[in-house]
């Protein structure tokens, strides 16, 4: 959902998945830059559609992933038609966080491997207070200066623009029948780590109305930061 007070279309988070390849990606476009929604969408799409193996070191594919995402981002923006204020800001490029997650079948359940840049998080919840999270492990670690994935400069720089990929952190584990993986952008991720309301959130998964009501209440009571919110849950049936 969008930050309270904004339109749904203002949301700069993105989520993509490919069920056949069992790949998932979330991204939180940075609102200080513009066209971050376009960039977040391009990066999650490229993450799940590219032929990347997340079980490998992300240094092997991040360069190519960003190159493809940049092409999508660059082509989506009608540079020549932009008024001066958009043109002058868009040249600085866009920024986003990213978490990519891939599963493989394994005897005990699903083996997974994930990579992340920034403060969007993966939380592996195994019931009650039993959870692990990465790349951040506690609510205190969320700050306003996370590492980010940059699109590279916009027009008049050409579409071919070398971007140095950021260093991604990796995490792996096994998803079993009694556990859930949450992918969350920073505000909702921090809230989950702080208040541990995994069971309540899991119960509301099928009702976006009730979930929106819960998040709205939490924002209004200042327990959750007012921000774009994306929460994805993956579990075995």
């Amino acid at each position: 959902m969008s930050k309270l007070g904004n339109k749904e279309s203002d949301c700069e988070d993105s989520f993509s998945f490919r069920s056949r390849e069992m790949k998932f990606a979330i991204a939180d476009g940075v609102s200080a830059s513009i066209f971050s929604d376009v960039w977040a969408r391009a990066i999650t799409d490229s993450t799940v559609t590219g032929r990347y193996n997340f079980f490998e070191n992300p240094d092997n594919f991040l360069n190519d992933l960003i190159k493809h995402a940049r092409e999508k981002w660059y082509r989506k923006i009608e540079w020549e038609k932009l008024p001066w204020f958009l043109k002058n800001k868009a040249v600085s490029g866009s920024y986003t966080t990213l978490v990519g997650l891939q599963f493989q079948k394994s005897g005990e359940g699903l083996r997974y491997s994930s990579f992340a840049v920034g403060d969007s998080v993966l939380i592996h919840w195994e019931g009650a207070d039993d959870y692990s999270s990465y790349p951040l492990t506690s609510p205190e670690q969320f700050d306003n200066t996370p590492k980010l994935v940059w699109s590279g400069k916009g027009h008049p720089m050409p579409i071919e623009f070398k971007v140095t990929p950021p260093k991604a952190l990796t995490y792996s584990g096994i998803l079993t029948k009694n556990s859930t993986i949450f992918l969350a952008t920073d505000a909702v991720g921090k809230w989950l780590l702080e208040y541990g309301r995994y069971a309540e959130v899991t119960r509301l998964l099928n009702s976006s109305f009730e979930m929106t009501e819960l998040f709205t209440r939490e924002i209004n009571s200042k327990r959750m930061r007012n921000d774009d919110l994306t929460l994805v849950s993956v579990f075995l049936e």
Binding site: D10, S31, F35, S36, D37, F85, L86, N88, K89
Partner: peptide, 11 residues
């Protein structure tokens, strides 16, 4: 100031 107020949908 305009730069800081500029979002993808305008100022």
């Amino acid at each position: 100031l305009i730069y800081r107020c500029t979002k993808s949908d305008g100022v």
